[in-house]
Design a protein around this nucleic acid. Structure first.
Lengths: 232, 232
DNA sequence: TATTTGGTTTAGACACGTCTAATTCAACCT
DNA sequence: AGGTTGAATTAGACGTGTCTAAACCAAATA
C-alpha cells in the first residue's frame, strides 16, 4: 500500500514531468512540495525501490509506467473532486483545490465511480485540466498554446488555467478569465506583461508573464475537448 | 493540530463512554481500535498531556469537555458524510460506514457546512444515529429502549441500529430492519435470541441477543427525533 | 587543467505511532 | 493476610517521514 505522502510525490513528479519533461530534479520536487532536498532524495530512493520511478544519481528522476498510473489515479481523483465540488456543492472555482488535495487520497474506487457517474464522466475539471479516464491511459497532452505565445490584436479563448496558486486563481476568477471566455490581447509590455480585454465586459486586465505562461488558449473557431464546468 | 489517529482514539473513547459510561479501560479501547494495550497506554498519555482526557492510572479514562468536543466534531463529520453518501451518491445503507471513516478526518469546515446545507441540516444519519449539531453540544442521549428490553407480542418501531459491523448492517438491511420500520416480537428464545415479524412483509427474522441489544426502538405512538434518511 | 560553485547525496537525529517482552499493580480468593 | 491472576504499564525496538549539517559530485569558469 502506498502512503499519502508517496502519492503526493508521484503526483508532483508527474506534474513536473508534464511541464518540463524528464528528468525531474531533486530540487524541483523539493520546491514543488515544500520539502528539503535530502528529504526528497530519501523518498525518491523508496519510490525507486518500489519500481515507481527510475533514477539516475545526480541527474534526476522519471516515472515508470506503474508510477505514472498511480499519479494518474490520484490526478483523476483530484479533478473529479474539483468538478464535483463546483457542480454539486456550490464551491467556487478557486476554492476547490485545497479540498480536493485533502480528499483525493482517501476516496474509494466506488466513490470515484459514483462521483464520475453523477457528473456524467466529464473530460475536464473546472480549471480546464483534463481528467484522466477511468482506464488511466495518459491523456494526450493537447497542443494548446499559452497566452504568452500570442501577440497584440489576437482574439483567443481561454481553455485552461493553472490550479496551483489559490491567489492567482482568485484573481483570475475575479477578472473573469475562466475556461470558455474569449479575450483580446490589448498590449504586451516589456517582461511579457500582457494586457487583455475580456469579451462582454469592458474590463481590461494585466497579467504578469509568469501567469500568462500558464494559461492555455485556443483560436475561437477550434475547440478544446470541453470548456470546463461552469461556476459562480 | 490533532492527527487522524488521535481523532480516532477520541471518537472511540466517546463511543465506549456512551455505551458503558466512564471510565473507559485501556483494553476496551485497544479492542475497539484493533491496537495492542501498550499502544493505547502510550497514546492515552499523549491525549492526557493535551488536556483531551483525564486518566487515572490502572483505572481508565474519561474525556474532558475539550476532548468530547473534538469527538463530536469527528462524529458530526462521519454522520453527515453517511447521510450525504446515501442521499446524493446512491450509496446503500450498509456501504457508507467505511467511506465515511476514511473521509471524516479530511473534510474542511466549509465542506461540512455545505454538506449539511445540501441535506437540510438533518438530525440523524441513515442508521438513526443522531448527528451532533454544528455547535457541538452533546446530543441528549435519548432514552430509547433496546430491542432486547421488549418481550413477545410487543409492537415497536426501529429508531436506530449500530453501524459498527458491516456484515450485521448488511444482514439487517436485507431483513428490512431499518430505522422507521415497525416490527412485532414473535418469540424470545433462550440466550435472548429474538424473532420478529417485519411489518408489511410476511417475513420473520431471528436476531441474536448481541444484535438485539444494539437496536434502539420506540413505541409506535411516540416519535424519536426523526427516522433516518431513506435508502435503497 | 584546476578551481569554484551549486545542486545532490550521505550521515545522523528526531517525532510519531506501533509492536513484543517484561514488569508492576490491584483486585479477588482462599 | 498472602497468593494468584489478569489487566495496565514500562522498556525497548522498529518503520516512516522529516530535518540539519557535512560531504560529495559534476558542470561551468578561469
Amino acid at each position: 500500500m502506498l502512503s499519502d505522502v508517496m502519492e503526493d510525490y508521484l503526483k508532483a513528479i508527474y506534474s513536473l514531468q508534464m511541464e518540463h519533461g524528464p528528468p525531474v530534479s531533486t530540487s524541483a520536487i523539493a520546491e514543488y512540495l515544500g520539502k528539503t532536498p535530502p528529504t526528497v532524495t530519501s523518498m525518491v530512493g523508496k519510490l525507486e525501490d518500489r519500481g515507481l520511478l527510475e533514477r539516475e544519481k545526480y541527474k534526476g528522476v522519471e516515472l515508470t509506467e506503474e508510477g505514472e498510473t498511480v499519479a494518474l489515479e490520484v490526478l483523476r481523483h483530484h479533478r473529479l473532486l474539483e468538478a464535483y465540488l463546483t457542480e454539486h456543492l456550490d464551491y467556487s472555482w478557486s476554492e476547490v483545490h485545497e479540498e480536493a488535495d485533502a480528499l483525493e487520497h482517501h476516496i474509494s474506487e466506488e466513490f470515484e465511480r459514483r462521483v464520475a457517474a453523477a457528473l456524467g464522466d466529464p473530460e475536464v475539471d473546472p480549471h480546464g485540466d483534463p481528467i484522466p479516464s477511468a482506464d488511466l491511459t495518459p491523456p494526450n497532452s493537447s497542443g494548446l498554446s499559452t497566452l504568452s505565445d500570442h501577440t497584440v490584436g489576437d482574439v483567443i479563448v481561454v481553455c485552461r488555467v493553472s490550479d496551483r496558486d489559490p491567489e492567482e486563481l482568485e484573481y483570475l476568477s475575479e477578472a473573469g478569465v475562466v475556461p470558455g471566455t474569449t479575450i483580446e490581447i490589448i498590449d504586451v509590455a516589456p517582461f511579457g506583461m500582457v494586457t487583455v480585454r475580456v469579451a462582454d465586459s469592458e474590463r481590461e486586465q494585466s497579467l504578469p508573464e509568469s501567469v500568462a505562461r500558464t494559461i492555455r488558449v485556443r483560436e475561437p473557431d477550434e475547440s478544446c475537448e470541453d470548456e470546463g464546468v461552469s461556476t459562480a
